[in-house]
């Protein structure tokens, strides 16, 4: 199996804060889209910063296309397209001027693709970045990231602030990107409906720990939420049958790994399909 990105036991602590990354681990197979999900402050941005070497890690390994990331390894950065949750570019530049800059920095800059795509997404070429709306600057950042022919896209909340029409166009660009089976995407997002559409895998992170990595289809079609009455819940084998649970009023919601198996065992308990948001809630707000 070819992996575009491998993270092993990534750790980071900050001296004056509780916040940390604690042995975060996951792998992205080549040709897939990995959604990265977690509550605010869970460590998504920190993980991404550690991958890209904008912060130093205290421990663990990060390999992109099998190579370890370091300041000296500039060739691997030719193949990585990045979008941060920020303006990203100098405010005084226009998209056109930005392309002049980027064409001299990236070996494989594709100016035709840049011009065609900025046109398709209605990004004005001669307006200064500081005069662009947030949605526009995010679109611009995504186009810039795609325009230097990368093999891996790393996106930190790149679609938040975009309206649904534009988001769909962007998601299509991402699917077009992974039409090449050597291309992969790591995208952190609060907009889990986007991930439910196009992600192949989802990694959940909570309080600096990676708690679950699973195929999206497995999560959506096999996982489930058992809605238990108090007496029913007592009869469950907590170790075997459920992953986590939380109480909501008189019922207990339990996260179940396999709906069909669970249903066979406990036919009388209602079991629902689950969304990524609900899985996250059950992993984050768990009582057990």
């Amino acid at each position: 199996m070819n992996y575009s990105l491998e993270i092993e036991n990534l750790s980071k602590t900050y001296p004056h804060s509780d916040f940390r990354l604690d042995r975060v681990s996951f792998k992205i197979p080549a040709g897939t889209i990995m959604g990265f999900v977690g509550e605010n402050g869970a460590g998504k941005t920190t993980t991404i910063s550690a991958i890209l070497n904008t912060i130093q890690k205290d421990g663990g390994k990060v390999k992109v296309f099998g190579q370890e990331m370091s300041d000296n390894n500039i060739d691997v950065r030719e193949d990585i397209g990045v979008v941060f949750d920020a303006v990203n570019f100098s405010p005084e530049l226009t998209p056109k001027k930005l392309s002049n800059v980027m064409s001299r920095i990236y070996k494989n800059w594709n100016q035709d693709y840049f011009l065609t795509t900025t046109n398709k997404l209605d990004i004005p070429l001669n307006r200064k970045v500081k005069q662009l709306s947030r949605g526009m600057t995010m679109k611009l950042a995504i186009v810039v990231a795609l325009s230097h022919s990368p093999k891996l896209l790393i996106l930190d909340e790149a679609t938040s602030g975009l309206d649904p029409v534009v988001r769909e166009e962007i998601l299509d660009l991402f699917l077009e990107f992974v039409e090449n089976e050597n291309h992969s995407i790591l995208m952190s997002s609060h907009i889990t409906t986007d991930l439910e559409k196009i992600a192949d895998y989802i990694t959940f992170i909570h309080k600096g720990k990676s708690i679950l990595t699973e195929k999206k289809d497995t999560l959506i079609y096999e996982y489930g939420i058992a809605r238990c009455k108090a007496e029913q819940f007592i009869n469950l084998d907590k170790e075997e049958d459920i992953l986590s649970y939380r109480k909501r009023g008189h019922q207990v919601d339990a996260l179940v790994k396999n709906k069909t198996v669970f249903e066979k065992k406990y036919g009388d308990i209602i079991i629902d399909n689950v969304t990524i948001d609900e899985i996250m809630l059950l992993l984050v707000k768990r009582e057990g």
Binding site: T32, L175, Y201
Partner: peptide, 19 residues
Amino acid sequence: PSMRSLAKSIHVSVITVQK
């Protein structure tokens, strides 16, 4: 169609089509 181009044209993830 190849898995990946079908995934793109119906707007779903590649692994879904692969399955």
